[in-house]
Each structure stands twice: as structure tokens, then as C-alpha cells.
Simulated assay, not measured.
Amino acid sequence: MSQPKKEPIKNKKVWIVFGILLALITPWYFPESFGDILIYGMPLWAVIIIIASMLLSAFLSYVIKHHWMLEEENEANEKEGVK
């Protein structure tokens, strides 16, 4: 049987991952040398931000799908319990 879902706001691991990913998409702390390194014509800092943005989107999708308790799920569970 699956574990009951909790609100992700109470999960410290979710907040840690959010913090790391949000720090990676913030470009102003990157060293100036990151602008000199090019990957397929793009500066290294831009590549890091693009990859971190995709990871942030994927992580948000995971959290919403697997950790977020939706009202529809509550209603469906209550109806099944009544029958």
C-alpha cells in the first residue's frame, strides 16, 4: 500500500533541493571566467542556467505529482471510504 501524501511545504528535503536549484539559476555570483568559456558558442554560465532551469521544472513536476495532496484526491478517497 502506498504511503499517504504530505504537503511538500513540510518536507525539508524538498526545500533544500529548491534552494540549490534556485542558486544555480542565479547568474550574478558566477566568476567572470565563466563568460570566457564557450560551449557550442554559449557562455558556460548560460549553459548552467539552462540545465538548472530544466532540472527545476522537472523537480517541480515531480513534487506536484508525487508529494502534493490535491483536493480531488481527498474527495475521491472519501467517496471510496463511504461505499
Rank of each mutant, 00 (worst) to 15 (best):
S57A: 11
L56E: 05
K65D: 10
S61Y: 14
S53L: 06
T26L: 11
A23F: 05
F34W: 15
I37R: 10
D36V: 11
A76Q: 13
I20M: 06
S61W: 10
L21R: 00
L38W: 12
A76V: 06
N11Q: 03
K6D: 09
A52M: 01
F59Q: 00
L55R: 01
L60W: 00
S2T: 14
E32V: 14
I9A: 08
G35C: 10
F18H: 12
V63M: 01
M1A: 12
I9L: 07
Y29C: 10
G81W: 08
I20P: 02
I20S: 06
F59K: 00
K13V: 10
H67W: 08
W68S: 08
K6A: 10
W68L: 15
W45L: 05
I20N: 02
E71I: 11
Q3K: 15
A46V: 14
S57L: 13
E72I: 06
F59P: 00
E72Q: 03
K6Y: 08
I49Q: 07
G81M: 10
M42Q: 15
M54H: 08
I50L: 13
Y29S: 10
H66N: 15
G81I: 07
P8S: 04
V82E: 15
W68C: 04
S53N: 05
L44C: 05
L60F: 01
W28F: 12
H67Y: 15
S33Q: 13
M1Y: 12
F30Q: 02
G41F: 01
G35W: 10
K10N: 13
L22D: 11
E7D: 15
K10I: 11
F30C: 03
K79C: 07
V17F: 05
E72L: 03
I48P: 02
L24C: 06
N11E: 07
L56R: 04
L60D: 00
A76P: 03
A23Y: 07
V82D: 11
